[in-house]
Write a protein that binds this DNA or RNA. Sequence first.
DNA 1: GCCTGTGAAGCTATTCACAGCT
DNA 2: AGCTGTGAATAGCTTCACAGGC
Lengths: 214, 214
Amino acid sequence: MTKTLSDRTVGRLSLYRRLLNNLASTGAKYAFSHDLAAVAGVTAAQVRRDVMAVGHTGSSTKGYDVSELADSIGRFIDGEQRQSVAMVGVGNLGRAILAYFNGRRPNLAIVAAFDRDVHCVNRVIHGCRCHPVEQLEEVIAGQGIGTAIIAVPAAEAQAIADRLVCGGVRGILNFAPVPLRVPPSIFVQEMDITTSLEKVAFFARQQHRQEEEF
Amino acid sequence: MTKTLSDRTVGRLSLYRRLLNNLASTGAKYAFSHDLAAVAGVTAAQVRRDVMAVGHTGSSTKGYDVSELADSIGRFIDGEQRQSVAMVGVGNLGRAILAYFNGRRPNLAIVAAFDRDVHCVNRVIHGCRCHPVEQLEEVIAGQGIGTAIIAVPAAEAQAIADRLVCGGVRGILNFAPVPLRVPPSIFVQEMDITTSLEKVAFFARQQHRQEEEF
DNA sequence: GCCTGTGAAGCTATTCACAGCT
DNA sequence: AGCTGTGAATAGCTTCACAGGC
């Protein structure tokens, strides 16, 4: 029964929800597909397709009810119960993410952090308890954590990923600049900042060249 | 003449280069497409296609010469001269990225940072001079910066993007959780951590459900 | 025999375009 | 008149499969 939804679609739905909440806070009650498309930077047809996927249906006169659609998407993406996330690596980047996420989403919380460094361990950092990395499997299994963020140096990332999978994690957000090798049932989202920056620099240069040609 | 390369391909090439450098440092002299594919987490055919795009050609007996291919990719992605990058927003995330990038790539350097906060301004942070955000256009134009990273709160991101484009930036890496509206000639790479995490949590849950069904 | 380079096929994602509704 | 929901068309990306080389 679980309709398998594409990676891209889920990403956009998450974005739509946030944008709908923004709209709601400006007092907007209804939005047309092209309104949402404009703020999301996609086409109206894309929005309608994506909304179709969550089974929500709008009205042809007023468009989508902003808060209803946000709720539909929320139920669809978040599910009913709260999900717990672990953060592995509490360096600059790990801390930045903890600071940002601290109590932002009601259904998704980073509840445990792990680090090797004795300066972090057993302290509470941005509202999140930091455990020694030795206890990784134990804490993850104990708290029923299914999602993890890897923010450790490249050399350690694969070993951490293996241990996370052992502990029962099924989704990983990887900031380390190496691709992870995990069983196919595990979902990995690579967030490779180096690659992204090189890509942006490449296209910036490309664009520059093109302008010079005319 | 400039063959237009897809976003995806450029990203993978950047990754291949890094992996080739890793291989080189382990002493490997040659690598087959399937070797590179294995570490990159893609298929061998994909690697060959991507390598084709840079115009490099390997040998059918030994595969690709590791350092030659890395160089070819480097020339292709980086171009000949050094590219300068600006960082806008020196909060937790901006600082983390500065710390990470500090002198890592020879042809790509974050040379200027900007912030509103008087605690940052006119200091050198992780090797990067921090200017008051008022001087954004001036410094960017003056230093010929074509690429920028946005790491400011959502509410300020669009205004910063507009100013960057005015100043002559043609590529933006955006960490703010709102899509940017820029002219079509400007390349934007969205790095939306919230969306990515929600996506991972979604598929982790999905997987969980599937396992329960049997 | 096993490799690369590549045309062709296959697949996925996006957009078009229009029926149906209000 | 202008919207949504959606089959059909298109565009873009990846894999197949094999010719040609060592």
